[in-house]
């Protein structure tokens, strides 16, 4: 009450003297901290920023793996970009990348992990632990193993075509993108499941009890209470799965090498092919730059989604 009585024009009612002072409860800057931050800054600049800038630069050169321009490469300005915007394979590749990263990573693996975590929530502790251990194993398997397992089981006379009733059917050839996506989701779902299991255990029992007492069905409790409370975990998982899927070049390359046709030619594979099969290292670097851009945009999107309150 006394505050409002002494209040000058400003709405808070701060005395004039205090208005110029730095607030104690807001972040403050201490110059001495620069000294402490210096070593980290040097390392960051030297080991991260310089290579990145160099890679960006390479994207605007005519560097080649072998031949004339392998050593005597030069800056070619917009030449690579010009090629890029007229490259039909590039556009297809972008679409496939988004499909792969968002479809099988952000959405697929997250959803699979979430469903598994919810399904295992109420089951016996032993079963939960065994399933959790298996999920970790699936996640720690090297991509080569995953690629071999899925390739072997989805091509002719593999287990999946056999189960579908036609051992001679080459599913991998026929539905290459689908199978690659499934393999990726499968390999990442375990990690997502572990994240969701932990998050589910943090949802207070009494909140769910309150919902049940109020007459909410299991589905209503799940969709109106549990899932909204898992929101930040869902976003984190989606982001993590996106990044891990982007890095999952090995899996796709080993299973299909981008084929058949260009059906699974996602950007990392395309970049690799351009650089090491067609020797256009400069163009390959530009494709790499595009990958960085896309992942930055996707990452930003998820962070935004997570920050939104309702």
């Amino acid at each position: 009450m006394s505050v409002t009585q002494n209040a000058p024009a400003n709405t808070l009612g701060l005395p004039e003297k205090l208005r110029l002072e730095a607030r104690l409860d807001k972040a403050r800057f201490n110059p001495a901290s620069l000294v402490l931050l210096a070593p980290a800054t040097v390392l960051l600049l030297g080991l991260f920023l310089v290579p990145v800038v160099y890679a960006i630069y390479l994207g605007f050169t005519n560097l080649q793996l072998i031949g004339l321009h392998a050593v005597n490469y030069r800056f070619t300005g917009w030449a690579n970009v010009n090629t890029l915007v007229h490259d039909a394979t590039f556009y297809q590749s972008i679409w496939l990348t988004v499909l792969f990263v968002v479809g099988s990573g952000a959405v697929g693996a997250t959803l699979l992990g979430l469903v598994m975590a919810i399904a295992m929530q109420d089951c016996l502790r032993l079963i939960r632990q065994i399933a959790g251990a298996l999920a970790i194993v699936a996640w720690t398997l090297p991509p080569t193993t995953i690629a071999i397992v899925w390739k072997a089981s989805s091509t002719e006379s593999g287990i999946i075509p056999t189960l579908l009733g036609n051992p001679n059917y080459d599913l991998l050839y026929d539905q290459a993108m689908l199978i690659v996506c499934l393999a990726n989701s499968w390999s990442l779902a375990g990690l997502a499941m572990i994240m969701f299991s932990a998050a589910l255990r943090n949802v207070p029992e009494e909140i769910l009890a309150a919902a049940r007492l109020e007459g909410a069905s299991r589905a209503q409790t799940l969709f109106k209470v549990t899932l909204p409370m898992l929101r930040s975990t869902i976003v984190t998982s989606a982001l993590l799965m996106t990044l891990l899927t982007f890095g999952n070049f090995t899996l796709v390359y080993l299973m299909t090498a981008g084929g058949p046709g260009n059906q699974t030619n996602i950007l990392p594979v395309y970049s690799y092919l351009q650089g090491f099969k067609f020797f256009n290292l400069g163009y390959s670097a530009l494709l790499g730059n595009v990958i960085v851009l896309i992942s930055a945009v996707l990452g930003g999107l998820f962070v935004l989604l997570g920050k939104q309150r309702r």
Partner: peptide, 21 residues
């Protein structure tokens, strides 16, 4: 009998409010 079928309203000691609503 499952709690949803008992027609009981309860005020929890810990409140148990839905934090996202």
């Amino acid at each position: 009998l499952p709690s949803g079928q008992r027609d009981v309203a309860m005020v929890f000691q810990s409140y148990a409010l839905y934090p996202h609503m």
